[in-house]
């Protein structure tokens, strides 16, 4: 039995501004085992980045509010940790790679300094300056950048190389959990493949558990053990890669999502067919199932609050179509 690393329960996150309240994450729960990779997929605005930022407690101050839920990391409740203890977690135990490598690096510091900073902040072993520099070289080599370039500034690197530097920073302290928020979306296709391969290699070598956020089901198929499908701040379906990609029974949203991408084995049966309609307004969500307005199987029951139907020990779907089988 695998050990649980991360346990998120009933998480509710809202963005509250003077003008409106955005319900970004609406009661999501999931687990992640050590060394496992979970993919979170969903349309733009589904709440993926919000979920990631919540785990690191990096939501925008004042605006981003965790209204409910519990996040256990190695048994510790992150939400009740002090900011000081949380700082020790960030970058050391839990790291994050952000959506856009172009803007993720500080333009006025050398990349070597930016990697070294992560090491210095978590220098429990009291390594000397030279040892830290050696480690910087090691990390750079690991991501395929010649250590001789550590004195260069971000603007001297291409997008793909910047993302490697970002990965180097995230992995410098060998975290137990890496959250990668669309790590390749901003890169062109060939570079995407390289960066993904690098991430997979490093993950396998370092035994890092990973949450991989993406729009791209192809990336999920390549990288993930389990998949969570997110819609309007809820996880509408969770399962193993197999459950999601090959199983017969799916949430209508998952079906729609898969209808709009090529099949796992590469043969594309139907042309891209994006799901009709738009995601509901997160400032004014419908009472019941939030997919109801776009769902081909909608009925009156969908106006009621939905609960998860458990299709197998690994596979759950939040849809009334499967309610009786729970």
């Amino acid at each position: 039995m695998k050990e649980t690393l991360l346990e998120v329960t009933d998480l509710v996150v809202k963005y509250k501004t003077d003008l409106e309240t955005v319900s970004a994450v609406n009661g999501i729960s999931f687990n992640l085992n050590k060394g496992e990779t979970l993919g979170i997929v969903g349309e733009t605005g589904a709440g993926k980045t919000t979920t990631a930022l919540t785990i690191l407690k990096l939501l925008p101050e004042r605006v981003g509010i965790i209204e409910n839920g519990r996040i256990l990391f190695e048994g510790k409740d992150l939400l009740s940790l002090s900011e000081r203890d949380m700082m020790k977690m960030r970058g050391d135990k839990i790291s994050m790679i952000f959506q856009d490598p172009m803007s993720s690096l500080n333009p006025v510091h050398t990349i070597g300094a930016q990697i070294a900073e992560a090491l210095k902040l978590h220098n429990e072993k009291n390594r000397t300056k030279e040892q830290l520099e050696t480690r910087v070289d090691e990390v750079l080599e690991m991501v395929g950048i010649p250590p001789s370039r550590k004195g260069d500034y971000p603007h001297q690197f291409s997008g793909g190389m910047k993302q490697r530097v970002v990965i180097a920073i995230a992995l410098a302290c060998e975290p137990d959990l890496l959250i990668a928020d669309e790590p390749t979306t901003a890169l062109d296709v060939t570079i995407q493949a390289q960066v993904l391969m690098l991430m997979r290699e490093l993950r396998d070598r370092l035994q890092t558990a990973m949450i991989l956020i993406t729009h791209d089901l192809g990336v999920v198929a390549q990288m993930c053990d389990r998949v969570a499908v997110m819609y309007a701040g809820e996880l509408v379906e969770t399962g193993t890669l197999k459950d999601i990609f090959t199983g017969e029974r799916h949430h209508p949203y998952t079906k729609g999502l898969f209808g709009s991408i090529p099949k796992l084995n590469g043969e594309s049966k139907s042309p891209l067919s994006p799901i009709e309609g738009l995601m509901p307004d997160p400032t004014d969500l419908p009472a019941g199932c939030s997919f109801y307005p776009r769902c081909p199987h909608a009925s009156e029951q969908c106006l009621l609050k939905q609960s998860d139907a458990i299709l197998s020990s690994t596979h759950t779907v939040r849809c009334r179509l499967f309610g009786k089988e729970a």
Binding site: L58, M87, M89, G91, F98, S103, P107, E117, A170
Partner: peptide
């Protein structure tokens, strides 16, 4: 509000360090 400031926070830098080391010069 820049991304690289968030990156610095994600490394575990304190609020002060983020302001003086990362934000100030920019």
């Amino acid at each position: 509000r820049q991304d690289y400031v968030r990156t610095a926070k994600a490394k575990g830098a304190s609020k002060q360090a983020v302001i003086w080391k990362h934000a100030m010069q920019n």
